[in-house]
């Protein structure tokens, strides 16, 4: 080998790298995410067609769509879908309304702005297990501080999460407390990037603050609102930590969402095949809702 070609080789190699950088750079991350997400999804789909238990003593057998047919007849499945829907329908609209109000409160000269923004982040940054523990203490029917507040206000004490009918609304309350700040911050970002001109023009024409909000802010905020709605819908449907720590799906199965039911089926009853089909249903539901919200956004 001659002198020149051995000098040219590193040169050529670096040119090769530069030319192929567009796939070499994201390649490892994509491969990793593929192995960690897509392969498990496929495996999960395969599992869902089997009658399989964790213990090796019981051989797994192919049942096709059998698990899915069983699911449709499973009252506990329908209960879990209903609880999940209830949780989301209580939590998310409340977060959007309260989040918008807080965003409007923050969208002006606020005293100690930096401190206020730092404090507002705390609920969503804190460890969910810790949050769940502290709310569980506050919900305690005998000694919880929430009942003390109710009594001080002259209201009746409540069983909170120990009451079958109140378990889901109470858990949704925790979710509202935890995630309203995120909605507020997303909407605040939307408010602050709005163009000034339409507001100035409207003000010159003598528009009232009320008109300014409904005629200009509200339509301009639509994309941001839909982004917040999508994000929160998806996450609310997937809520696990708060529910598992505070109620474990109880009392009975009164607050058992699909997420929690699938977890029980898989990791406590060890019905792997059945749990896998429950998870497929969860995935279908979450995807359908994500797509649905996006379609809604397009039509607006």
């Amino acid at each position: 080998m001659t002198q020149t070609s051995s000098q040219a080789r590193p040169e050529r190699r670096s040119r090769f790298i530069d030319k192929n950088l567009w796939w070499l750079m994201p390649g490892p991350a994509v491969l990793l995410l593929f192995v960690l997400t897509i392969l498990p999804l496929i495996f999960n789909l395969v599992l869902s067609t089997q009658d399989r238990f964790v213990s090796a003593a019981q051989p797994s057998s192919f049942v096709g769509l059998g698990n899915y047919l069983d699911i449709l007849k499973d009252e506990r499945f329908w209960n879990s879908v209903w609880q999940m829907t209830k949780f989301t329908l209580i939590a998310v609209p409340a977060q959007l309304v309260l989040g918008l109000l807080i965003a409007l409160l923050l969208n002006r000269q606020v005293p100690a702005q930096g401190l206020v923004r730092a404090l507002i982040l705390l609920p969503m940054i804190s460890t969910p297990v810790a949050i769940a523990l502290i709310w569980a203490l506050m919900f305690n029917p005998q000694l919880g501080v929430l009942n003390y507040f109710l009594e001080t206000l002259g209201l009746e004490r409540s069983l909170w999460v120990a009451d079958e009918r109140l378990a889901i609304p109470a858990l949704a309350l925790v979710d509202i407390w935890q995630w309203t700040p995120l909605v507020a911050i997303i909407l605040l970002a939307g408010l602050q990037t709005m163009p000034e001109e339409p507001f100035e023009a409207a003000r010159i024409d003598g528009a009232s603050p009320w008109q300014l909000f409904w005629r200009i802010t509200w339509p301009l905020l639509q994309p941001t609102l839909f982004a917040a709605l999508t994000l929160r819908m998806i996450d609310a449907l997937k809520t696990f930590d708060i529910i598992e720590v505070i109620t474990q799906g109880g009392p009975g199965i009164a607050s058992e969402t699909l997420n929690v039911y699938a977890f029980r089926a898989g990791f406590e009853f060890f019905r792997v095949g059945y749990a896998a089909s429950l998870l497929t249903m969860l995935l279908l539901l979450v995807t359908a809702i994500a797509v649905g919200v996006n379609l809604l956004r397009r039509t607006r």
């Binding site: 498990p40 599992l47 696990f240 898989g266 749990a275 979450v286």
Partner: peptide, 13 residues
Amino acid sequence: IIPYITFLLPWFL
């Protein structure tokens, strides 16, 4: 979008 728990069962096995 995908719930983490969907990956967890295959991972566990």
